[in-house]
Amino acid sequence: MDGEKAGNEQMSLRERKKRLTYQAVSEAAIAMFLERGFDKVSVAEVAAAADISKPTLFRYFPAKEDLVLHRFADHEDEAARVVAARADTESPLDALRRNFLDGLERGDPVTGLCDVPQVLAYQRLLYGTPSLVARLYAYQSRSEAALARALGGRVQDRLAAGQIIAVLRILALENWRRIDAGESAEHVYADAVESAELAFVQLRTGLGEQR
């Protein structure tokens, strides 16, 4: 038993170290991309700045774009987790609506409703680089697949997941576009809530209650 506990602790230590390495390399890369532009910084330069070899970097990040999109990794299965953790009396759509509205209230960057300068700079890098936008769709595709499994994995669940993830993406992008144009998060907030409420009404009307 003691050996098993020690093994688990060692695994936890390795996982923590791995996560810290992921974060450190990603943050170093993003800083370089923001300063010089995504296409003007090579993977070799990022590896050198992080004091690791290029092959080691690719073991952590399969593609250059993943150095930027690593920030989305923790959110990849967020919708699925929200659905799985909901109360028995709460429908998936109600749980996802509640989670998104909570995110708007907190100014969570994932909702697009965040005017912190560093977040805006990151989002401009992301949405202004075609290869990053294309890679982002792969993350969203995995979010869709995870949500479909959480809903039950049937054809109707996959259809529902596709529509839900698309709606969340569109809501966040609309919020970001307004803030990027110069509006404050505080000014956009009421409209963002109204749009979210409208979106979930449309989902509910078109999809019915998913239980």
Rank of each mutant, 00 (worst) to 15 (best):
L126F: 07
G7F: 05
A146K: 14
H75G: 13
L101C: 06
Y22W: 11
R98H: 08
E194V: 06
P62S: 13
L120K: 08
V193T: 12
L13S: 11
A48C: 07
H70Q: 11
Q10H: 06
A181M: 09
V119Y: 01
F58V: 06
R71A: 15
V116L: 10
I170M: 14
A134D: 11
G7M: 08
G182V: 03
Q163E: 09
M11P: 01
F100N: 04
F200S: 00
G7E: 13
S91F: 04
K18T: 13
H75K: 13
L198H: 10
G103A: 07
A48Y: 05
G103V: 07
V155Q: 12
P117I: 01
L203E: 06
V167H: 00
E35I: 03
L125S: 04
A185T: 07
E174G: 03
R19N: 09
Y139W: 05
L67Y: 05
V82Y: 09
A166R: 09
A85Q: 11
A148C: 06
R142N: 11
R106Y: 01
T56P: 01
V46P: 00
L57P: 00
E186S: 12
L104F: 01
Y127A: 03
E90W: 05
L147E: 00
G153C: 04
A28S: 11
V133Y: 02
V25T: 08
T56H: 10
S42G: 10
T21W: 04
L101Q: 07
L34F: 02
L207C: 08
E186V: 09
R169F: 05
A145H: 10
F100Y: 13
L125G: 09
V167R: 01
I170K: 03
T205H: 08
S42E: 12
S195T: 07
K18Q: 12
Y122S: 10
K5Y: 01
E9G: 06
E4H: 13
G128L: 04
Q123S: 09
E144G: 04
E209R: 14
V119D: 10
R16S: 12
L125I: 08
K5A: 15
Q123P: 00
E78M: 05
A190L: 11
R154Q: 11
A161F: 03
G107L: 08
E9F: 07
H70K: 06
K18L: 11
T205P: 00
A47R: 00
P109C: 08
D51Q: 12
A79N: 10
R16Q: 14
T21S: 12
L67N: 03
V110L: 15
A28D: 02
R97T: 10
Y22I: 08
S53W: 06
R71V: 15
L173N: 08
V155G: 01
R158A: 11
A134E: 14
L101G: 01
Q123M: 13
R158L: 09
A73C: 09
Q156G: 06
S195E: 15
A145I: 12
K54C: 06
A44R: 13
D180Y: 01
E209S: 13
V82D: 11
L101S: 06
